[in-house]
């Protein structure tokens, strides 16, 4: 390949990526800009002047605020369930390298590979046998059943890099197994527990497909936005969108910077 050919290929690729990014961001810009349009139907083409009036309307909206509260309650519940389940699953799998381990692994990973509505519905059907109807509790249980899988995978990845000689050394020095766990294993897993909690919170907060099938007559912020999108569009939904976009940009920037620093420090270490 000659140098000029390489440069031409490079330009084609750059243009392609540029177009792809426009494709990704243009719709989001349209949605965000409409939040500042004085026109009472979300639009960017029928421009009636810049306004901030839809922002206070968001905070006066009781259903959305109630949904936000419900979302946070569910997300905290999901953390409380999925971290212990995920941790226990990873600790068990870490020591089971047999056929049974393979089967258990398949069962624990399967919720990740299932459509969300299946998880929501099967939870709903199962709990009806105990006369528990759809609601915040079932939404939490349904979400936790697959978010625990993500937590398990994160803990397992960390455990696979665990230096077993540390544990042996501690046992040789007379530490009890409980002591080893408390003083060596848990501190080693703590960073993962924090990341996994954050991921679990976000996954739960953002979830729609599982939640809408298991929440019954109750609602979260996201399911409420979902039903607003079907009936009566209003710029208030765009305001929710702007808030989400700002938060997402902040979290994503933080994430990328942290992971890059991690990569850089790994590179220095090696």
């Amino acid at each position: 390949m000659t140098r000029s050919e390489g440069r031409a290929a490079r330009i084609v690729l750059d243009v392609y990526i540029g177009l792809f990014l426009v494709y990704l961001f243009a719709p989001l810009v349209v949605m965000s800009v409409a939040a500042f349009n004085a026109y009472p139907y979300p639009s960017v083409t029928q421009w009636r002047g810049f306004t901030l009036e839809w922002f206070p309307a968001l905070f006066r909206d009781e259903r959305l605020m109630r949904g936000l509260f419900n979302s946070i309650v569910i997300a905290l519940g999901v953390i409380a369930l999925s971290i212990p389940f995920g941790l226990a699953g990873a600790l068990v799998l870490h020591r089971l390298q047999s056929r049974a381990g393979g089967l258990l692994y398949a069962i624990m990973v399967s919720p990740v590979l299932m459509p969300g509505l299946i998880i929501g519905l099967s939870t709903l059907i199962f709990w009806r046998h105990f006369s528990v109807p759809g609601g915040l509790f079932l939404a939490m249980v349904a979400q936790a059943s697959f978010i625990a899988s993500y937590c398990m995978l994160m803990f397992l990845a960390r455990l696979e890099r665990f230096d077993l000689t540390l544990e042996e050394a501690a046992l040789d020095l007379g530490a009890s197994k409980f002591m080893v766990m408390r003083r060596i294993l848990f501190p080693y897993l703590r960073p993962t527990a924090i990341t996994a909690s954050a991921i679990a919170f976000l996954q739960s907060f953002e979830n729609y497909n599982t939640t809408v099938f298991s929440i019954g007559g109750d609602w979260t912020l996201v399911t409420e936005v979902g039903s607003r999108l079907r009936f009566g569009l209003s710029p208030v939904v765009n305001v929710v969108g702007v808030v989400f976009v700002v938060l997402t940009v902040a979290v994503a920037t933080l994430y990328v910077l942290l992971s890059r620093r991690h990569v850089a420090s790994d590179a220095r270490a090696s």
């Binding site: 719709p27 989001l28 349209v30 949605m31 409409a34 979300p42 639009s43 960017v44 953002e206 729609y208 996201v222 936005v225 979902g226 999108l229 939904v237 929710v240 969108g241 989400f244 976009v245 997402t248």
Partner: peptide, 12 residues
């Protein structure tokens, strides 16, 4: 970014 908002952007 939330899935619903990505859909909403296309709805708009």
């Amino acid at each position: 970014l939330n899935e619903l908002l990505r859909i909403y952007a296309w709805l708009m």
